[in-house]
Design a binder for these strands. Structure first.
Length: 430
DNA sequence: TCTGGGGTCCTAGGACCC
DNA sequence: TCTGGGGTCCTAGGACCC
């Protein structure tokens, strides 16, 4: 038996923890740069606000609605969801974190279903009471069915936040109620194809014979989904492992024309990639940089390009990766364009010890020195806050005379405080 | 004025090997 | 007229997820 525990409207629920006055009110959370809506409260969904709506269109579309708006605050969301995971760890030792707001748990099938259902209801209560975030729990013999159950748990109050699909009768009933496009693993493309074939519910799909699925799609991923809907457990249990590629990219609040400004941004993305590599104990052998103009500005000339570089010796050194990324940027940069977004991707990732040194790369001593330096910088930034120590290439003076770095180069006009991670934001009681 | 950021897996096809 | 058979590795592109 699998369980999925999923935070309801995760980012909105996190914001409400310290804003209880926003209960039952429409709330949305925006993407980076206050770009578009990425999370909505149930009340905001009921108003008809769609995910991905650009913020500047929100007031045009909903002139009369009083909507509470937040910039995204990942420091807060990471911390609060971490607390949820810690409770799950205590209640269900066999689990894996699937995303920032979801955990799968494995439950012994020897337990009576009624007991498991009760366990789920109590888990919801405990998380609600200890962290303040509502979760929905789905329980079923396959992960795809568990996801479906969690949707029912969210939708119908009667389940008390926990829905179990434990018999074939319940499974068939659930499949009939479930639109094919909502099935985990069926995206927009496949949903459109299936609809065109007259398949509208999960039940319609599951009823077709396996041979038909194989012949129609010739694709093992969708076949697995079909099997899971029919009760056969076959989506592999993906433990959270080390990332195989790491990307840091941002859109700029405005547009950027000059190379020097681009350098600061790209240097910051490169430094972040190096940090992420070190945190998971890995090095990368390929560095790639991309650069593009604003595709929404059809009135302006467009440019999109990327360039990559293979390294003799894989690295996770900030200095190294920043320097290489800047070389790539110089190759990509064309004057006369207005740029909107850039990013750094590192690939060819492997363990950081032992690093395979290149036969002709004789800089081993330097390599060790840089490694010690990065270790110290990481420790300082962990204790005193990120960006306490950084490379000169990572900062510049903005037009307002303030130093611009990674954190403050993003627009975030509606950011909440961080009462759980910063002394300066701690809540005072009168 | 203003439109996000990060991942994974699978497959087909080309280059190359014997 | 007629030109084998069996592999591996890599890459780009497409699909999906949150």
């Amino acid at each position: 038996m699998y369980g999925i525990i999923d935070c309801d409207n995760c980012y909105v629920s996190c914001e409400r923890v310290f804003r209880p006055d926003l209960k039952d009110k429409p709330v949305v959370v925006l993407s980076n740069n206050d770009g578009c809506v990425v999370a909505r409260s149930n009340e905001a969904k009921a108003l008809g606000i769609k995910a991905g709506t650009p913020y500047f269109q929100l007031a045009e579309q909903f002139p009369d609605a009083k909507i509470a708006v937040f910039s995204s605050n990942y420091e807060l969301y990471g911390e609060l969801t971490g607390r949820v995971v810690e409770i799950i760890r205590q209640e269900a030792p066999a689990f894996f974190r699937y995303s920032i707001d979801e955990c799968f748990v494995y439950l012994p099938s020897t337990e009576p279903p009624a007991e498991i259902k009760l366990w789920g209801e109590l888990l919801h209560k405990r998380i609600r009471r200890s962290v303040g975030i509502p979760v929905s729990i789905g329980l079923a013999p396959t992960k795809t069915l568990a996801k479906m159950a969690s949707h029912f748990a969210k939708k119908y109050q009667g389940y008390r936040h926990c829905c179990i699909i434990d018999t074939d009768v319940k499974r068939q009933k659930a499949l009939k109620l479930y639109p094919i496009g909502d099935v985990w693993g069926i995206g927009r493309r496949y949903a459109a194809r299936l609809e065109a074939l007259g398949i509208h519910t999960a039940y319609d799909f599951a009823q077709h014979p396996e041979s038909w699925v194989r012949a129609t799609f010739n694709n093992v991923v969708i076949l697995r989904t079909w099997k899971e809907l029919n009760g056969e457990d076959c989506v592999p249990n993906e433990e959270m492992t080390k990332k195989k590629s790491i990307c840091t990219s941002r859109s700029f609040p405005g547009m950027i024309k000059d190379l020097d400004s681009l350098r600061v941004h790209v240097s910051n993305y490169a430094a972040r990639c190096a940090e992420k590599l070190r945190r998971q104990g890995t090095v990368a052998s390929v560095i790639s940089v991309f650069l593009n103009t604003n595709a929404f500005r059809e009135d302006l000339p467009q440019y999109w390009n990327y360039q990559d570089m293979r390294l003799l010796t894989p690295t996770n050194s900030t200095t190294d990766i920043v320097q290489k990324a800047n070389e790539l940027l110089s190759q990509l940069y064309q004057p006369d364009y207005y740029y909107k977004k850039a990013g750094v991707i590192v690939m060819g990732i492997g363990p950081d010890s032992p690093v395979q040194q290149d036969l002709f790369d004789t800089n081993a001593e330097q390599f060790q020195k840089m490694r010690r330096l990065d270790t110290v910088i990481d420790r300082i930034n962990k204790v005193n806050g990120s960006e306490t120590v950084l490379l000169g290439a990572q900062q510049f003076l903005g037009s307002d005379g303030r130093v611009v770095t990674f954190a403050n180069a993003i627009k975030h006009d509606f950011r909440s405080k961080n009462p759980t991670t910063r002394w300066s934001d701690i809540i005072a009681l009168k």
